[in-house]
Design a protein around this nucleic acid. Sequence first.
RNA 1: GCCCCCAUCGUCUAGUGGACUAGGACGUCAGCCUUUCAAGCUGAAGACAGGGGUUCGAAUUCCCUUGGGGGCACCA
Length: 487
Amino acid sequence: MESKLQPQVRVRFAPSPTGHPHLGNIRTALFNWLFARHHGGKFILRIEDTDIARKVEGAVDVILDSLRWLGLDWDEGPYFQSQRLYYYHEISNSLLKDGYAYLCYCSPQRLEAMRQEQMKRKQPPKYDGHCRYLTQQGKTQLEASGIVPVVRFKMPLEGETTFHDVIRGQLTFQNSTLDDFILLKSDGYPTYHLANVVDDHLMAISHILRADEWLPSVPRHVLLYQSLNWEPPQFAHLPMILGPDRSKLSKRHGATTAIEYKEQGYLPEAMINFLALLGWSLDDRTELLSREELIKHFSLGRISKTAAIFDKRKLEWMNGVYLRRLSPEEFARQSAPFLDRDLPPKVKRPLDTDYVCRITPLLQERAKTLAEVPQLADFFFLDELPYDTSLLLSGGLDATQAIKIALQRLEVVKTWDAGSLEGILRPLATELKLTTGKFFGLLRVAITGRTAAPPLFQTMAVLGKERCLKRLSTALGKLATPTIINY
RNA sequence: GCCCCCAUCGUCUAGUGGACUAGGACGUCAGCCUUUCAAGCUGAAGACAGGGGUUCGAAUUCCCUUGGGGGCACCA
């Protein structure tokens, strides 16, 4: 039983609309969501759009779409920081008034030159505090000059800052290694540090679950909380998700945007399951967990500290598992849009739904993604199969003779179903003194144009008598003119 | 350059001082099944980064080294 006196769990996913959310972002969203749902708390969505220069058009929609696709529903928001400037200014002014911050008039050029110089001298790049020590006269002068200042935090020059991270434990940083970071930019927008602290406080966030990369900025935030006399939330820094080359996930690694996986035919349930296991585990053997099971068992205590490399092959396997678990009807329904999208243009649309429903059961256990379905199914829809005649001859048998006889026997078939076809063709193999492997293999090429396909009789049954006979005749034609090569 | 984090099979991970001959999963390889492919089943190979302590005993604790990652913007 959860105690009513326990403060409510309130967590947030706070992406910035400077790009499309990648797997790492979404994994963070998932962990926050699972944590909220597990504790019956609130999952809040907050858009950190305080960088107008890097803002990407449409990014917010993609963020929302990604969350919706995965079923990560939020309880509050989306809040937009760009619509909350009032709060940041208010807090900034109060910090200024209380002597925890100061105005800085340094030009970007000066700061850049300073950094270059520091780098050249192999010093850590750090604001030199120029405006922190301005004389009253200097200040008055700069104010009069019309330069719009930024607001900087007055970092304690000595001492250390300690905080507790739920996953990492006690962490201590020397204040002297931190510099006077900017709180409010000259365009009036807050930096991440200010906006984040202000909003987490105002929104009564209880736990901050976010990626490891933020760890170094926690002492700044803790100091800010202290200056404002606010109680900081609990911190839990999640291990990062890395690309196969062990570096931070980026476009270089191919598909990294969450929504791309939808287009590539991954199921949201598989995606959730897979992502949940990147940095979290239930025990030493459970791999497949439903959404409900994840909610039930999720806990911060079982999150690992080690960065995880995203392994697409395991995702493919897991997606295959989820695909096979679908009912045949559901699999057909999910496959339809992919067939419509990816089948060759010459295939007439709209596709025959009944026909599709007869095809997809043959593909269900062969597809790792829905995007593979059209590719596995194209011979069901094509009138001409572009295969090489040599495939008919590769068995080292009299292909023409075999197909001719098969054709004769099939022409008179009344009931065209898998059972009847097998009842005719299997004895025929014996009669022709051919192994089933060779004989059926030959027919497979003639019927499907490929050497690997779903089981022959079921395939033939779905294709129907007319199409099958035609394809066998076409094969005979090809065999009759084996030397003609199409360039 | 400075600061911080991390370290078990190729990859995801279990492991919280003795139950470890280090377990599971993906992938790989082999076999079975079989009309091909897939699925399924069985099996195999495969890891505690290195060195010092602590302890009767260390994958598990401490230190150092090494390696990897992240951070150091009027970006988040």
